[in-house]
């Protein structure tokens, strides 16, 4: 008798786990923030956008963070969402949605979906090339002005960042070198270098990228992260 009771309890416990838990969100929503098919690189943890889903009483957005390389991914439930990039987020202007002509894009999720979000960055960093001699890292890149109409903004500074890990930005760096916007002679050919301090424990390579701070825009725009052997 006691044995069978024990077995029943074990079975009930095992089954109840399944019974009273909801399924986790399983639909993946992935993509990149792009300009004409090229990913817009941003700082780690700086840029996010909001997904709103109506029909749940209280409205609270799901914030989706954008990774350094401009990609994002989120696990969601199937449904209809509204995608909004909040004002003044990111080093870019948002484009009005083609269908709604507002800042809101309707997003139908039914199974996994990959979607790139087109934006209009103030600038793009092209052809960033890194070289090293000894512990000096040199970067050459081209700065292309994308927004040229009345909304155009000047470059406040261009900064070269070096870090020991793949997270490279204004906060996460071990060495940096800045050129002020006014000192840039030829935006098509920007070269800057920095000496990398000794790293303990020793590692054979560092991670490098160039960032552009646009006047009056908080979030910086970056080139892709490049791993450079020293």
């Amino acid at each position: 008798m006691r044995n069978s009771l024990f077995i029943i309890i074990v079975i009930l416990l095992a089954v109840s786990c399944k019974k009273d838990n909801y399924a986790p969100p399983g639909t993946s929503f992935k993509g990149r923030i792009v300009y004409q098919g090229e990913a817009v690189n941003v700082g780690h943890g700086e840029v996010f956008f909001e997904l709103w889903e109506s029909g749940w009483g209280k409205r609270t957005p799901i914030n989706v963070g954008v990774a350094q390389d401009g990609s994002f991914s989120s696990l969601l439930f199937d449904g209809t969402y509204q995608l909004v990039i909040p004002g003044n987020q990111g080093p870019f202007l948002t484009l009005p949605d083609g269908a709604s002509h507002t800042d809101t894009t309707l997003l139908q999720l039914k199974g996994d979906r990959t979607m790139d979000i087109e934006v209009l960055p103030y600038y793009m960093i092209r052809n960033a090339k890194v070289s090293a001699s000894g512990r000096q890292v040199t970067v050459n890149c081209k700065l292309e002005k994308i927004v040229t109409d009345t909304r155009a903004r000047n470059v406040e500074r261009v900064t070269l960042y070096v870090n020991r890990t793949q997270f490279v930005d204004g906060i996460n760096n071990i060495a940096n070198q800045t050129i002020n916007g006014g000192d840039i002679q030829d935006p098509a050919n920007i070269t800057t270098q920095v000496n990398v301090p000794a790293i303990n424990p020793v590692q054979s390579s560092v991670f490098v990228r160039v960032g552009v701070k646009v006047e009056g825009v908080e979030d910086m725009l970056f080139s892709p992260v490049i791993e450079q052997k020293l």
Binding site: R59, P61, P86, E218
Partner: peptide
């Protein structure tokens, strides 16, 4: 907070957030 703006949709959000 979202709870405040849910209870009173007339309350606008602060900038740059």
């Amino acid at each position: 907070g979202d709870d405040i703006r849910n209870n009173n949709p007339l309350v606008t959000k602060n900038p740059n957030q």
